[in-house]
Design a protein around this nucleic acid. Structure first.
Lengths: 338, 338
DNA sequence: TCAGCGCAAGACATCGTTCTCAAGCTCGTA
DNA sequence: TACGAGCTTGAGAACGATGTCTTGCGCTGA
């Protein structure tokens, strides 16, 4: 360092400057009711004088909190960024925490190496709470968190809720979302439905499909259900394959708005008109939905709100609140593609 | 908590279990040469016995480090995710740090509120170093970091390098990248070039354009330079506008591979063939470049390596290394669009 | 025999904050 | 005058690790 670096002032210096003890200085700055107004004023003046800011490390040790919350992510960073779901959700968490003194840390756990590191951090008590963005049953990390008693929020439903009494859960009701989309198709009089969904092993996909089926029954035959990726290109490709089969259909339920966008492109290229010939319903209410032509009717998943909720529950649990389960509701956003 | 939570074992318990003092236990676990092999073995056994993991807070206070590095980001999270540049770069940082015991924290600084929070965290010494992903001249936060003497790495060139002696810098040579792309056009015999770039106020855009111009001169007239966003749709739209002008051109230099993808789509729709009629060169060597038809010739910006480098420099500076400047080199990736 | 050395390990201080406990002070009342 | 209540304040102990200084021991060599 060529720059002379002045060492940060400590509470002791403030105390000395104000002519009081460290305890008094601490209490004054933390606005304890047991300190006289006059002393507080004096201490605060001294603190400002020497540019005092409490040191995070010392404070963390004393209060037993790091004021850091880990956001546990199973996907690798690249997928994290390409999956539109995450962006909104993480924004929600970040937004909410920015109102508190807490800081979110994205903690990856896709490789074994990463999971070991995560585990190590948990054991070191580096975080006051953990928000698991894509929990899965049987995850060793969840087991570790349970044993350590770290406040944990799971985002997404876990089959059989094995940890319901220990962890909090936040999820959107995907089955309900499926209901809404399918119901809209039905009311529009569509009878031969195709579904272009995300990956088959994705729990949200499973739940949505259940919702579709509950409403549509035989109008959505097994053969018409296609599993693919979440993106534009995936939808495009899937629709090409369906068109190649030359089956009759008049509605397409999509697993994401990006898929829907690709589907619409493919339909248009095949000379089919949306919504005159074919109805299309998306999922997510991503920004792309409004940019589609025609604007996409879709199911809004309250991702940002879900992030807010997860963050809030985490903060509450840190304060000692009991685990809770919180279900967010889906909403059909009606536009022009139906 | 319904679950009984056992409190984490401390070093004192390990020491007691091994029948040694805390100091000895600490040294044994940190593999100090001043401890006999036999004692080490005994202490390690005791540590394993009681499941000891050193507490992050206590350790942080003692060693004077939090083992956390802040990644300062000026863009809001949504842009962060949509800009392909960041994803790679952040992955690089994360990757490199995952080899160390350090943890990256994404710290936003787009709103005033966020900047104040960031400042607060800096003053609290919450981080051992800061990597500023998009530094700009005159940023108050940089001023704060300089005053506090926090090891800082700037990613991107700052005009006039006002802090060269205090901060480290890592950047890709965008002008060189422009050179490469333009040279390729020239060698291919293209004479009437159009450039569809990113935002006009982006420093990388400015540098690349300088590189283009140095090679192409009058072959790239001012009127043919279009500033837009970084995405597919932006390129598509820009190319539509250019086609509407009915000017003659035989090459398109693009500010990103996404832009290039949109440009190619628009050209194809207009009945123009790439590369037979028009040559297209992208930028970034994003994964999309290989998926384009034809596969995109592009300039590879070593983003991931840049992330590695930034992280490494940060780690070195924490250990006391002097600030350095490190320029990453661009590379032309030849594929089929030229 | 004993000063002198090297090695292993312990005692104690340290990091910067907060918290517990006790004590000083003033005041009002018996 | 004395005593307790109520309000402020300070001394010192946490918190959980690491770092410095010291001590004890066994060994060597004059």
């Amino acid at each position: 360092m060529t720059q002379p670096v002045r060492t940060a002032p400590t509470l002791a210096e403030v105390a000395a400057a104000a002519g009081v003890s460290r305890s008094t200085a601490s209490r004054a700055l933390n606005d304890s009711p047991r300190i006289s107004e006059e002393t507080k004023k004096r201490v605060r003046a001294a603190a400002k004088e020497v540019n005092f800011v409490p040191n995070a490390r010392g404070r963390a040790l004393a209060v037993g909190r790091t004021e850091i919350i880990a956001v546990l992510v199973t996907e690798p960073l690249s997928e994290l960024f390409s999956d539109p779901t995450y962006s909104e959700f993480l924004s929600g968490i970040t937004e909410e925490l920015s109102e508190s003194s807490y800081l979110p840390v994205i903690l990856q756990a896709s490789s074994t190496h990463e999971r070991n590191r995560a585990r190590e951090h948990f054991e070191r008590r580096s975080f006051d709470a953990v928000i698991d963005v894509s929990p899965y049953k049987g995850s060793e990390l969840l087991e570790v968190l349970r044993e350590l008693g770290v406040p944990t929020v799971l985002c997404g439903q876990l089959e059989g809720h094995p940890y319901r009494d220990v962890f909090s859960t936040v999820y959107s009701d995907d089955e309900e979302g499926g209901h809404f989309a399918a119901l809209a198709m039905k009311e529009r009089g569509r009878k031969d439905i195709v579904a272009v969904l995300g990956p088959q092993d994705n729990p949200a996909v499973v739940d949505r499909l259940r919702g579709y089926r509950a409403v549509l029954g035989e109008d959505l035959p097994d053969a018409n259900v296609i599993y693919t990726g979440w993106n534009n290109g995936d939808g495009y490709q899937a629709m090409h394959q369906i068109l190649a089969r030359e089956i009759a259909f008049d509605g397409v339920l999509c697993g994401s708005d990006h898929i829907a966008a690709g589907v619409i492109t493919a339909l248009n290229e095949a000379g089919l008109s949306v919504p005159a010939d074919i109805s299309v319903v998306g999922f997510d209410d991503h920004e792309i939905a409004t940019r589609c032509v025609p604007a996409l009717t879709t199911v809004r998943q309250p991702l940002r709100e879900e992030g807010h909720m997860a963050a809030n529950i985490a903060l509450d649990m840190i304060k000692g609140a009991e685990p809770t389960t919180s279900v967010m509701h889906m909403q059909l956003i009606q536009r022009d593609s139906l």
